[in-house]
Simulated assay, not measured.
Amino acid sequence: MFRAFRFGRADGFVPVHAPAVVPRRHRFGWLIGLLALVELEQGLAIATVAYDAQGDPTTVVQDYFAALGRGDAPAALGYGDVPPGQTKLLTSAALAAQRSLATPDGVQVHDTKPDGDTAKVDVDYTLHFASGDTAVHDTVPVVRDGHGWRLRSSAVPVNLAAGNGSKRGTMVGAVVPVGDYGVFPGALPVSFDTPNVQLRSPARAVTFKESKSVLVAAEVSKDGRAAIAPALDRAFAACLGGTSTVQAACPVPASDTTTAVPGSLRGKTTRPIADSVQLTVDSPDGRVKISGSVPVDAKYSDLDFNNIATSKDAKSISLHAHCYATNPAEIVWDEA
Results as ranks from 00 to 15, higher is better:
Phe2Gln: 03
Arg3Ile: 11
Arg3Phe: 09
Phe5Pro: 04
Phe7Pro: 15
Gly12Glu: 10
Val21Asn: 10
Val22Thr: 11
Pro23Trp: 04
Arg24Phe: 00
Arg27Gly: 06
Leu31Tyr: 07
Gly33Ser: 10
Gly33Leu: 08
Val38Glu: 11
Ala47Trp: 03
Ala47Ser: 13
Val49Glu: 15
Tyr51Arg: 15
Asp52Ala: 09
Ala53Tyr: 07
Gln54Pro: 03
Gln54Asp: 09
Gly55Thr: 06
Asp56Gly: 02
Gln62His: 05
Gln62Asp: 04
Phe65Lys: 05
Ala75Lys: 11
Ala75Ser: 13
Val82Asn: 10
Pro84Phe: 09
Thr91Ala: 00
Ala94Glu: 11
Leu101Pro: 12
Thr103Pro: 02
Thr103Glu: 10
Gly106Met: 12
Val107Ile: 01
Asp111Tyr: 05
Lys113Ser: 10
Pro114Val: 13
Gly116Ile: 11
Ala119Asn: 05
Lys120Cys: 08
Val142Met: 11
Gly148Thr: 14
Trp149Asp: 07
Asn159Gly: 07
Leu160Ala: 05
Asn164Ser: 08
Arg168Glu: 05
Arg168Asp: 13
Gly179Phe: 04
Asp180Gln: 14
Tyr181Glu: 04
Pro185His: 03
Ser191Leu: 12
Thr194Ser: 09
Asn196Gln: 09
Arg200Lys: 15
Arg204Asp: 06
Thr207Leu: 00
Glu210Pro: 02
Ser211Asp: 14
Ser211Gln: 04
Val216Phe: 03
Val216His: 05
Glu219Cys: 09
Val220Cys: 10
Ile228Gly: 03
Ile228Cys: 12
Arg234Trp: 01
Ala235Trp: 11
Ala237Asp: 15
Leu240Asn: 08
Thr245Ser: 05
Ala248Asp: 13
Thr257Pro: 00
Ala260His: 10
Ala260Asn: 12
Val261Asn: 05
Val261Arg: 09
Leu265Val: 15
Ser276His: 08
Val277Met: 06
Thr280Arg: 13
Ser283Ala: 13
Pro284Asn: 08
Asp285Cys: 11
Gly286Ser: 08
Val294Ser: 00
Ala298Met: 01
Phe305Ile: 07
Ser311Gly: 10
Asp313Asn: 14
Ala314Met: 10
Ser316Pro: 08
Ala321Cys: 09
Tyr324Leu: 12
Asn327Leu: 12
Pro328Thr: 12
Pro328Trp: 04
Val332Glu: 06
Trp333Lys: 05
